[in-house]
Amino acid sequence: MLHIYCPHCGEYREEEEFHCAGQAHIARPLEPEACSDQEWGEYLFFRKNPRGLHHELWVHAAGCRKFFNMTRDTQSYEIKEVYKIGEQPSVVAE
């Protein structure tokens, strides 16, 4: 069970209040029609699956229902950092 800090509520809550919404920082192509099938397919379906640091999108589903980002170590499950949407992570993989 993870103990997660919600940056909007400003306190730690149990993991069961949250949902993980997958990889963070996926930018939608500005001109989808100009994309090749491969570029569009990669945008839609291909995700990272790193061993180590991973930037994820989470939502405080049972609480304030806001999204935020989290940097988590997929190996140790350690949460390195929680930051709001639009901010850049300060902890990044080398």
Partner: peptide
Amino acid sequence: VVSTLLAKST
């Protein structure tokens, strides 16, 4: 005030 889970409901 907290919005949270209550007996699996919200």
